[in-house]
Design a protein around this nucleic acid. Structure first.
Lengths: 182, 182
DNA sequence: TGTGTAGTCTTTAGCATCGAACTTTAGCTT
DNA sequence: AAGCTAAAGTTCGATGCTAAAGACTACACA
């Protein structure tokens, strides 16, 4: 007994069993769901990280590209808005934009009508990178959900949305800070 | 139209709609599931972060406590094993242990039978912190899943486990690096 | 017993992030 | 107008992480 994968990570079932051994009043059902969610997310981020690396960008870059694209044409946002959207401090945003400008993914210009503002705008190259990343991501995601039949997908989507609504209502403040992709 | 929450974050539905607007060949069903997973995870981490902060520790500390407790009595692990388990480099582990020793959560000693090894052991205070964190976490988790009836919980757990198995099989290398709790 | 080799941590240098202080601009208020 | 206040970004100092290099111990083999 013990963990199978050389300490790298116990099986989900082994982990739940260990929790029960060390903590009374534990609902294994609940713990299974919560731990599966965490582990799934981590694996997804690993997968995305490999894909973005293959494109010569980082997950951090990709997050910014996503925010800009999703804002719609003409794909412009201010650093503060981006920072709020991504859950970063403005300071971190400044440096991230520095890097992305150097990589040619976005441009940074002062707003002429309000000179205290800065406009970050997606370049065609940045948009192209986003699309390539999306193509890779959708392939991965389709593969991930391959074993689920249409009914299961619908149910899963509905249930997760319900959970999300509950937690977002309870945390109205976008409260970010903590890593993670969008 | 547009986003409701002052740029902090669009609704999941709005976000999916934006994806469809900007990217052809998108399966909204799939995207909904994947994005809900990411967002749920982020909110969970925010919640955990608030709880651990309330206990005077960090999520990083909590991860280490979890690994030690789950390893079972006598709650000892080497820094390298911990690092593998948490997806950190040994270097990061060294510093994290420094801090936790200073906080009295763990002890660090050389293994007398193999003087190149180090043994990190949970202190009673560390174990106590872990239990308090668990109590808070289980309350939050129970509340999160409150709206799901037993059938839905069972189904959700089963489906997520299936997804996890699929992605863990595809990424046998624990491949960590990317942030996130366990 | 001497030496090579592998394994375990620690140290160093570089990078991204945060919190807080600072600079600049816009818009009010009087 | 002159000055106040608020908002938007940038800069600064500290922290935690990674990758790579270094130090030390154990073990194998000659």
């Amino acid at each position: 007994m013990g963990d199978t994968s050389g300490l790298g990570e116990p099986t989900l079932e082994e982990q739940i069993a260990a929790y029960q051994r060390e903590f009374q009043d534990l609902d294994p059902q609940v713990e299974k769901i919560v731990n599966a969610l965490s582990r799934l997310n981590r694996r997804m981020n690993v997968a995305y990280g490999r894909q973005t690396a293959e494109l010569g960008i980082t997950n951090a870059d990709w997050e910014v590209l996503k925010a800009l694209v999703l804002s719609g044409a003409p794909y412009r946002m201010g650093p503060s808005d981006l920072a709020k959207r991504l859950g970063l401090t403005p300071a971190a945003m400044t440096h991230r934009i520095d890097r992305m400008v150097a990589e040619g993914l976005v441009t940074r210009d002062r707003d002429e009508t309000n000179r205290v503002r800065v406009i970050v705008e997606l370049t065609p190259a940045g948009r192209e990178k986003w699309q390539e990343a999306m193509r890779m991501a959708t392939v991965f995601e389709g593969d991930l959900l391959q074993d689920l039949d249409p009914d299961e997908r619908a149910t899963l989507g509905e249930v997760l949305t319900r959970l999300l609504r509950r937690v977002e209502d309870a945390q109205p403040d976008a409260g970010g800070r903590l890593t993670d992709l969008d």
